[in-house]
C-alpha cells in the first residue's frame, strides 16, 4: 500500500512537472517568487530584532532556530501534501471522481496533484535559516542533542502532514473548507516561528495538547536551550516528538479513510 502510494505519487508528480515545464517562464518566476514570499516572514523577524534585543526573552539565533525548524518541517509536508487545498476545487467540479477509479491510493493522487517544485523554495529558505541558527545559537552540544535536530525535522514534517491529511478529510466531510485547514497548516507554521513565551498560556496549551504542533519545535528546542517550557511537562517529552507524530498520523489516516467512504460526489 505504501509502496504503491509512493510509486503512484512519483508517476503523477512527474506528469505535473512535465506539464509545468510547458510554461518555462512561469515555472522560473513562481520558483523565485515562492522563495522571496516565504522569506519575507524571516525578514519580518529581522525587522523586529532591529528594534529589540530579545523576543519573549529569546535572542535572534534562538528565534531563528524555531523559525528554521518550523519552516523546514512545514516545507517538507507542504511539498508532499500541500495540494490538499485544490481538493475543494476538485470536489466542486467533480474531477475528484476520476481519481477514485484509478488503481492507486487516493491520498497519493491528491498529494501529487498540481505538484510543483516551487514549493522547494520554502524548504531551501527554511534550511538556510536553520543552518545559520544552528551555528550561531548558544547550545552545549552533545550527541543526543545533535541527533535531536534531524529527528525534529522529520517528526515535524510528519505532524504537519497529519494536519494536512486531517484537514483534507474534513474538507470531504464539510464539502470544501480549505480555509479551516489553512488556519491549522499555514497558521500553525507561522505560530511556531515565534517563542511560546510571547503567546498566551491558553494558546500554548492548545498547540501542545489539542493540535500538538508544539512538538514540531517548541518543546524540543526548549530542551536544547535549557529553557523551561511555559506549560508544565515531564522532562522526557523533549524526545517525544516521533511518538507524537505517530499519534497524529494514525487518527489522520483513519479520518481520511472514513471521509472517502462518506464522500458524496457532485450531482452529475
Amino acid at each position: 500500500m505504501l509502496v504503491e502510494g509512493v510509486r503512484a505519487y512519483g508517476l503523477i508528480a512527474g506528469m505535473w512537472l512535465r506539464a509545468g515545464m510547458t510554461y518555462r517562464a512561469s515555472f522560473a518566476a513562481t520558483l523565485v517568487g515562492n522563495l522571496v514570499m516565504t522569506g519575507l516572514d524571516f525578514v519580518a523577524i529581522l525587522l523586529m530584532f532591529s528594534q529589540v534585543d530579545s523576543l519573549g526573552g529569546w535572542s535572534l539565533p534562538e528565534v531563528a532556530l524555531l523559525y528554521g525548524l518550523s519552516v523546514t518541517s512545514f516545507g517538507i509536508a507542504d511539498l508532499v501534501l500541500g495540494s490538499m487545498d485544490v481538493l475543494g476545487a476538485r470536489m466542486r467540479d467533480g474531477s475528484f471522481d476520476t481519481l477514485l477509479v484509478r488503481p492507486a491510493p487516493v491520498l497519493a493522487q491528491v498529494g501529487a496533484d498540481r505538484f510543483a517544485p516551487r514549493r522547494l523554495g520554502r524548504i531551501v529558505q527554511g534550511a538556510v535559516v536553520l543552518g545559520w541558527a544552528l551555528v550561531s545559537v548558544d547550545v552545549d552540544w552533545s550527541v543526543p542533542k545533535v541527533l535531536l535536530v534531524p529527528v525534529m525535522v522529520v517528526s515535524g514534517a510528519a505532524i504537519f502532514s497529519a494536519v494536512f491529511v486531517a484537514g483534507a478529510a474534513f474538507q470531504i466531510f464539510a464539502q470544501d473548507a480549505a480555509e479551516v485547514q489553512n488556519a491549522f497548516t499555514y497558521g500553525g507554521t507561522t505560530l511556531l516561528q515565534y517563542p511560546p513565551s510571547v503567546f498566551g498560556k491558553d494558546l500554548v496549551r492548545g498547540a501542545t495538547f489539542l493540535v500538538p504542533l508544539a512538538f514540531v519545535n517548541w518543546v524540543p528546542v526548549c530542551h536544547l536551550l535549557g529553557r523551561p517550557y511555559p506549560v508544565g511537562l515531564p522532562p522526557w517529552v523533549s524526545f517525544a516528538s516521533p511518538l507524537v507524530a505517530v499519534a497524529c498520523c494514525v487518527p489522520a489516516g483513519l479520518a481520511w479513510r472514513a471521509a472517502l467512504r462518506a464522500y458524496r460526489s457532485t450531482g452529475s
Partner: peptide, 13 residues
C-alpha cells in the same frame, strides 16, 4: 470509466 463531461487526459501534455 469514461465521464463524458470531464476528461481524464492531461490538458497541457
Amino acid at each position: 470509466v469514461v465521464f463524458g463531461q470531464r476528461t481524464t487526459l492531461w490538458w497541457d501534455l
